[in-house]
């Protein structure tokens, strides 16, 4: 346990000044700003549903469908490339510390980045709706969807941990940055063309985050399945990565 804590502490230090850390804040803010820009130019509120719920849903859909899976793939590839670029595995794995702790720490740090991005997104939704209440007359008096934003953020985060674990395994197993990222993009495209749209395909890891926040027929249990799946995949990945040789 102590070795895991030490490795985790080192892992957070390694994230300083990295693109992965910057994107944990930048990516969700960009999604919120994009939707905020559209909403502020719209003359009136949509009438079908609570406008703020609709606003939050728009952000969450864009986030979970494309941006979050892409960020998860990119973060995994970036975090692995930190070690591959300077052949740092040779140094790290020769240290007197459990290999499993080293890989597990990397996974926890990555999941931590995704959690930061989800919290930033939820906070961004709340702040932007607060601003809309002040500047858009049609939306005055409506409640800020704090529950919707944070529930959606946390559910999609727990669902995305599974695909992140798969991405992390690929990125740590093979040196190629392009391979990890390319795999993620291909998996997202498969989701977009319909693989994750019906029946059993809701369990397709790249489709799970968006299913957790679906406006009609949201499946919050997918968040739990995502987390459990992530634990299983990570255990397998740590075992595999700990046993392999580093030439």
């Amino acid at each position: 346990m102590m070795s895991l804590w030490r490795a985790l502490s080192a892992e957070f230090l390694k994230l300083r000044r990295t693109l992965a850390l910057r994107l944990a804040v930048g990516a969700p803010l960009l999604v919120v700003l994009l939707n905020f820009g559209v909403a502020i130019q719209r003359p009136g509120a949509p009438s079908s549903i609570d406008p703020f719920v609709g606003f939050a849903q728009g952000i969450l859909t864009l986030w979970t469908l494309i941006v979050l899976p892409f960020y998860a793939a990119l973060a995994a590839a970036l975090m692995a490339s930190i070690e591959f670029q300077g052949d740092n595995w040779r140094h790290i794995l020769s240290l007197p510390i459990e290999r499993r702790s080293i890989f597990l720490a990397k996974w926890i740090a990555g999941v931590g980045l995704l959690l930061i991005s989800s919290i930033v997104l939820a906070t961004g939704i709340c702040v932007s709706t607060g601003i809309l209440r002040l500047v858009a007359p049609a939306w005055r008096g409506l409640a800020v969807p704090v529950g919707k934003a944070f529930r959606g953020g946390i559910l999609s985060w727990s669902a995305v941990t599974l695909l992140f674990s798969i991405q992390m395994w690929i990125s740590l197993r093979w040196r190629s940055f392009v391979l990890g990222l390319g795999f993620g993009i291909a998996a997202i495209l498969l989701d977009l063309v319909g693989l994750g749209r019906s029946g059993v395909s809701q369990f397709y890891p790249w489709a799970m985050p968006v299913w957790t926040i679906a406006l009609n027929g949201s499946k919050p249990f997918l968040g739990f399945i995502g987390l459990m799946g992530a634990v299983g995949v990570t255990a397998l990945a740590c075992s595999n990565l700990s046993r392999r040789e580093y030439e």
């Binding site: 490795a7 080192a10 300083r16 000044r17 990295t18 300077g86 007197p96 510390i97």
Partner: peptide, 21 residues
């Protein structure tokens, strides 16, 4: 070739290993 993190300072590079050990 020394295994270093170019995006960290010299002291931070040592700090990474110090924390691990």
């Amino acid at each position: 070739t020394p295994t270093l993190y170019p995006h960290l300072t010299g002291a931070e590079n040592l700090e990474v290993t110090r924390r691990m050990l």
